[in-house]
């Protein structure tokens, strides 16, 4: 669940003026001497076109404001139950709105803004794909849930018995919900454990790591190193480098 005291823990009380407006959250903050921009979704948002455009618009404002100056780090806060499910949103092309958000995140990266995503609450499927998952560092806060679909629904759709999925999920990270599964697969870089703590030092470290990682997608290699995703890096490398006709 979304808790506004999160920002006190991240930046220290009095060091942020983050505004929560329904399911949209944004505002300036300061981490030590470093100005930071906070942008994200709030309170298990079902991300619709309006929220996607609010997030994209805020990213563009930050990029434009910092043009010619030092690009501020951007801290994305992701709390989303997934994409909004509605005929109208489909008709208007919600997938295109999400692609637009992704392009704005990529612009921020290419413009030199270090990006860190914090999963606060839940990160589900399309809502997570749109922006949180594209940051250079992804952190799951205590209690964060990450998933595509819960196991019961997955059982219904795949027609595989629930008990069997549950048993397999104890060993395999590839299909079951869980921030730890995403950590093992390399898509969550760090799991922060002690709730209610002072997050300033770990956030500063995550931002420093984001600077080092900028422009390089190391998630598949990390997943292989952590043993949760053993094929992705090797197969991609094979296709990327195979000698044509060889």
């Amino acid at each position: 669940m979304s808790d506004p005291s999160l920002f006190d823990a991240l930046f220290g009380a009095g060091n942020h003026t983050v505004v929560i407006d329904g399911h949209f959250v944004a505002g300036p903050a300061r981490l030590g001497d470093t100005p930071v921009a906070v942008i994200g979704s709030w309170d298990a948002a079902a991300v619709d076109g309006d929220l996607a455009l609010a997030i994209a618009g805020e990213i563009l404002r930050v990029v434009e404001a910092d043009a010619g100056a030092t690009p501020r780090p951007i801290v994305f806060v992701a709390d989303t139950q997934g994409q909004a499910l509605s005929r109208r949103e489909e008709l208007l092309g919600l997938n295109g709105a999400f692609a637009h958000v992704a392009r704005c995140v990529d612009l921020a990266r290419r413009s030199g803004h270090p990006t860190v995503a914090l999963i606060h609450g839940e990160a589900v499927s399309g809502g997570f794909l749109a922006f949180g998952m594209l940051a250079d560092r992804v952190v799951a806060l205590p209690g964060a849930q990450v998933r595509v679909m819960d196991l019961r629904a997955m059982s219904r759709v795949t027609k595989i018995e629930f008990d069997r999925l549950q048993t397999l999920a104890q060993h395999s990270p590839v299909f079951a919900p869980g921030a730890d599964n995403y950590w093992r697969m390399g898509a969550v870089h760090a799991l922060w454990h002690d709730a209610g703590a002072d997050w300033r030092a770990p956030l500063a470290m995550a931002l420093a790591e984001a600077v080092d990682a900028a422009g390089h997608d190391g998630r598949a290699a990390l997943g292989a190193e952590r043993g949760g995703r053993t094929l992705a890096a090797a197969v991609a490398r094979e296709v990327a480098n195979e000698v044509a006709g060889g």
């Binding site: 990450v146 997955m154 795949t158 595989i160 995403y182 697969m185 898509a187 992705a232």
Partner: peptide
Amino acid sequence: LHEANAGLIAISEIM
């Protein structure tokens, strides 16, 4: 869905 997490991450990597 049989490898939902791997698929979601793969799509992010494709993006």
